[in-house]
Amino acid sequence: MSREIRYREALREAIAEEMERDPRVFIMGEEVGRYQGAYKVTEGLFDRFGDKRVVDAPIAENGFAGIGVGAAMVGLRPIIEFMTWNFSAVAFDQILSNAAKVRQMSGGQFSCPIVFRGPNGSARQVGSQHSQSMEGFYAHVPGLKVVAPAFPRDAKGLLKAAIRDDNPVCFFESETLYSMKGEVPDPSEGDLLVEIGKANVCHEGSDVTIVSWSRITHVALEAAKLLAAEGISAEIVDLRSLRPLDEETILESVRKTHRAVVAHEGWPYGSVGAEVVDRIQRLGFDDLDAPVLRVTGMDVPMPYNARLEQHCLPQPAAIVSACKKVLYLE
């Protein structure tokens, strides 16, 4: 039996189920407890699990991210919430130099089973410092896993998998997705786990492949509708995991369509999108009938002005246009 629940509720269920299952799991972050979560992801958890396991932290991202890393090294399973991923910049050193390194530096003696999570990317007119897509910085780092689900079901299944993973996992949500509803199996049907490292074809098609993740998967779905109206059949590969990357699912789709567009919200320079393009051209060169194109956020800090902000973000029309270009129809 499936129910429709919101993305934030799916995340909450994942956290609650894992906390119920494993007493080593706790969540720490700003306003996660008594305030019920800045974006209400943790609503109700404080009352249910108490202050030992739902821990309100002061504004000290470097400090509490580091606390999480240390606790993970000696047997706990922390979930560290960043109010938004923008603020992870002041904790970057803890993730880059400690979480991603302790296993290697210790010759495999210690590991760091921790989840860093929070909303990522643009919200609405929150300006340049609060609109950044941070996933690329983290996907760059060996030792980390990076996931960015687009749908409530995947959000739940991936978060549960991330909490159980023995490695540090960076989990990217989106404020603009929190209220979105979607089908999620009832907990009575058993544990919903989505394997990290597996992409999902969320829309089948035959003429062109669109690779995307997180909020932009929904933009790609709109683009696919517009394309369908013009008789073009687009297939959408929703990556879900950015590291590891599911090469096989991407290539399988490209083998079918022979054309690919990669769409994402973050900046173009050296992004996960660039990595995807490299893999497609390197591993699928013979299957391609056109160069792979990208639709990305504009290569500028996000402006506050509403129109300019929309101008900077990937829109369905831009994805449509890129698809037509790889089909040599434009």
């Binding site: 400090g63 509490f64 580091g66 999480g68 090294m73 000696v74 050193d93 400690n98």
Partner: peptide
């Protein structure tokens, strides 16, 4: 022995985390 760390000060929050776990 939970390690030596190369980023000046970067291990101090981590140490607090170990104590947190204890």
């Amino acid at each position: 022995m939970l390690g030596g760390y190369g980023i000046v000060g970067g291990h101090i929050p981590l140490a607090a985390g170990v104590a947190y776990a204890s």
